[in-house]
């Protein structure tokens, strides 16, 4: 168990390291370097000033030296400044993390609440119900999230005027009201994957001998599902959840942009459009780290729940 834990932890750190190096090098390929942007903001700077500034900021050094310098600071918790907000990047992102969580976490729970009962039902019943549920899952997989958001904005905000079209809302009630549409869109767009997976896992378990024995002994469908199928389907479902966190974050980005939620995705997008590349780098790293951590937690809880894995 300890060996497995160490190995997975080291892997995650290695990936994070690679992503940070990759993005740092990419930053060098972004349009306009920070000094060019400074010059355009202040026409009195001469070319000699610019060269001096480059030396001051270390921009005349080779990119690898700069990366390791940045890494050393990052390990001490200093991630540099956001050009646009004139604040440390970390403090800009501090608030955004909570906004993102307030959208993503309820959406994930809602997706489970939709997908697991329907998946079990489809596996148990078969026939037209199975086909109908399958089609619904296919549509959920195929609809563009941003289009679903536009359609729901049109329906509920423009036509019916029941819900706000976007924004953060004031107070708790206002915040909840502004979360209904983004959370619904996000959960509908990820429910399809979980639905298909639950159905496939449940169908496989229903074919096992011990389930047939239980059925022959007269265990009712509901008892069968709760006692035999669900606990066994839960394990692969946890792994899948870990793997889907990246997709969840991607969906959150779209929803945050469309519903004007000031979360990580929105900050990242605005930062890229506004040439605020240090902020974009830190936002991307934070998102990646969160995804890897979630993935790791999913694997660990899987290993913890399934004694066979600890032995490996």
């Amino acid at each position: 168990m300890l060996r497995y834990l160490t190995q997975r932890l080291l892997e995650s750190v290695a990936v994070l390291f690679l992503v940070s190096a990759g993005t740092y090098v990419l930053l060098g390929l972004m349009p306009g370097d920070p000094i060019d942007l400074m010059i355009s903001g202040n026409p009195e700077l001469t070319i000699e000033d610019a060269q001096r500034l480059r030396a001051v900021y270390g921009l005349d050094q080779p990119i690898l030296d700069r990366y390791f310098g940045w890494l050393g600071q990052a390990l001490r918790g200093e991630f540099g400044y956001s050009r646009h907000f004139s604040q440390p990047a970390v403090s800009v992102l501090g608030d955004a993390v909570w906004v993102t969580l307030s959208v993503a976490a309820p959406a994930l729970l809602l997706a489970f609440a939709i997908a697991i009962p329907l998946g079990l039902l489809a596996a148990l019943r078969g026939g037209w119900l199975n086909r109908g549920i399958n089609l619904a899952a296919l549509i959920s997989l195929s609809l563009p999230t941003f289009w679903l958001a536009i359609v729901l904005i049109y329906l509920f905000a423009v036509e019916l005027r029941w819900l706000p079209a976007g924004g953060m809302g004031e107070g708790l009630a206002g915040r909840l009201e502004h979360l209904i549409l983004p959370v619904s869109v996000l959960s509908l767009s990820i429910a399809g994957v979980f639905l298909r997976f639950t159905r496939a896992a449940a169908a496989e378990i229903l074919g096992q001998d011990y389930v047939r024995t239980a059925k022959a002994k007269g265990v009712a469908s509901v008892g069968l599902m709760l006692r035999h199928v669900l606990p066994n389907a839960a394990l692969p479902l946890i792994t899948l959840t870990g793997l889907q966190l990246g997709a969840l974050f991607s969906g959150t980005v779209i929803v945050e942009i469309l519903f004007r939620q000031l979360g990580m995705g929105r900050v990242l997008y605005d930062a890229v459009l506004g040439n605020d590349f240090n902020l974009a780098l830190v936002a991307l790293l934070l998102t990646t780290a969160a995804t890897l951590l979630g993935n790791l937690l999913a694997d660990l809880s899987h290993a913890w729940l399934d004694p066979r894995i600890g032995l490996r």
Partner: peptide, 27 residues
């Protein structure tokens, strides 16, 4: 295969947003 696993777990859209801002003239 570890690399592939990592790739599957990464948040693609944020990465693509950053990648799409690359200035081709610097390549």
């Amino acid at each position: 295969m570890r690399g592939t696993d990592a790739m599957i777990a990464l948040p693609l859209l944020p990465i693509l947003i950053v990648l799409s801002a690359i200035d081709l003239t610097k390549l």
